[in-house]
Amino acid sequence: MKKLVAAALAIGLAAPLASVAAGAADIPHYPIKDPPRLSWSFAGPFGTWDKGQLQRGLKVYTEVCSGCHSLNMVAFRNLTDLGYSEDQVKGFAASHQVTDGPNDQGEMFKRQGKPNDYFPAPFANTEAAAYANGGAAPPDFSTIAKARAVESGFPGFVFDIFTMYTTKGPDYVHALLTGYQDPPKGMRVPQGGYYNPYFHSAAFLKMPPPLSDGVVKYDDGTPETVDQYAKDIAAFQMWAAEPHMVERKETGFVVIIFLAIFTVLIYYTKKAIYSRLDDH
């Protein structure tokens, strides 16, 4: 009876599973291509920021992306994380105009930015942003590195736990920025759309390819290529989304070591206590 029940259920469960694999191809699935997994300085249990890379990412953001994309939750003062001195941050903030007010006459006014100001948004509101960009508002960059994650599927999602794969967001951003290409034969790309097989929710997106080789000047000798720009802005976005990541991992290491020692001590205490019982 035991075998009969097991066999019946095994057949019942295995049959549809086999057809899952066969049927999955018919369903349109985005992104069309999975982003390649890159190696990042901040990945893994001992990952740290490459401050030079973050500074280059900030430069790409300031000179290219910030024309359309806001960075609402990052303040100028946070830029000291990137290795800038307080004076440099002051200077950088002062190069931005921020809206303040109302003043004693009830008027809003523009003034130079201060370190405790947040990055000013390129558009007054979402509606203005959407209107200026063909109907789709460019997303804010503050959390985007955590908001974009391409599913690993089964069994990949199980392996991700053990390989500590947590850089889906930066991988996605890099793949998208370097992934613009001609559409496959027979595919009609609508007016104002750009084909990109790495885009997460459709075959094309409204954003034109934002980067081209040499568009941002690097003064540290790093190659001025689209691939490099894409890596730098992705790393910058990861920092913007998770500014305490390195602190988190460092704290985690101490916690894990503590718990591991604690567990060993408890294990031997438990053994000693149970040895008093005659059945152990």
Binding site: P139, R148, A149, K168
Partner: peptide
Amino acid sequence: VFYMPNYLGHADNYI
């Protein structure tokens, strides 16, 4: 908590 804090959540909740 320390190494994969967003693994169990959905990415869309950061939008």
